[in-house]
Simulated assay, not measured.
Amino acid sequence: MRLRIAVQSKGRLFEETMELLNEAGIKLNNIKRTLLIPAKDFPVEILFLRDDDIPQAVATGVADIGVVGENEYVEKNEDAEVIKRLGFSKCRLSLAIPKDETYDGVKWFEGKKIATSYPHILKTFLKKENVKSDIHIISGSVEIAPGIGLSDAIFDIVSSGGTLVSNRLKEVEVVMQSEALLIANKELTAEKKEILNDLIFRIEAVQTAVNKKYVLLNAPEDKIDEIIDILPGMRSPTVTPLATKGWCSVQSVVEDKRFWEVISNLKALGAEGIIVLPIEKMIL
């Protein structure tokens, strides 16, 4: 028995999903031009689909679970369960208007034509804001619609904002934030739930290690209490005596964002022989 995972067939979400699965020990053979591929040493198989087909595939049982952008999950409104927020492929869904227009609030969109590939999300937002607009559903390059006279504004995915700038548009309202989600069919068997739990365990071990470093150092015994205060481990640092009297070896984990601050403080307390190692996996 294998757990079938629906994955986007191309693009940034595909690349980041495959990287996560690889780090979690899910190894695949050549994936080019193949729709369904079994993993080598773990009971899963990967089904490659268009991103907007994944919510329905999971809801109907064509796939057991799927990795999909939150934007597509909310837009399709299918009956699938969100299992885990994955924290990558982040973007936002925003309203944008021509650069030279003066924007004075959401009421600007009253009576305007808005081009989008996300009509459900947009309708929900406009209803909440009590704004009536003409929604023009379009696939492909939504951002060109105002420039060719097809619409007055657009509602689309924004990452860096560079595409808006190149089309002389400006972002005026962020409607929702989006990231990759792990979703599941609500009728998974007990056997498939067990495989899913094992997969989640592996994913969390990979994600826990992100942006963390393992630090080993030598420190004077009379400074250990101060060092422990600035160098916490997952519970507490590991401290062991050295052969040299009055010195200890200390091991701990440090987040990247605090790394240089912590190292500077350690040196000020007399720490020596500081070794920093990357962490591949971390089991809590």
Score class of each variant (00 low, 15 high):
F109K: 02
Y103E: 10
G69W: 00
K99A: 14
L86M: 11
H120G: 04
T116D: 09
K90C: 07
R92A: 10
K123E: 15
P119W: 06
G87Y: 07
N71D: 15
I121N: 14
L86P: 06
N71V: 15
I121G: 05
D100Y: 02
I97N: 01
I97L: 03
V106G: 02
C91T: 15
N77S: 09
Y118D: 06
K84C: 04
D100M: 00
L93C: 08
L86Y: 10
V74P: 08
E75L: 03
K84R: 12
P119K: 04
V67E: 07
A115E: 08
A115T: 11
E81C: 01
V67P: 11
G69L: 05
N71F: 09
W108E: 06
C91N: 15
N71T: 13
K113L: 03
V82W: 07
T116R: 00
E75F: 02
S89N: 12
L86R: 00
V68C: 08
A80I: 09
G105N: 12
L93N: 15
Y118Q: 13
Y103S: 09
L86N: 04
P98I: 12
P119T: 03
N71M: 10
F109P: 05
L93K: 04
P98V: 13
N71W: 02
D104K: 05
E110N: 12
T102Q: 11
F88K: 04
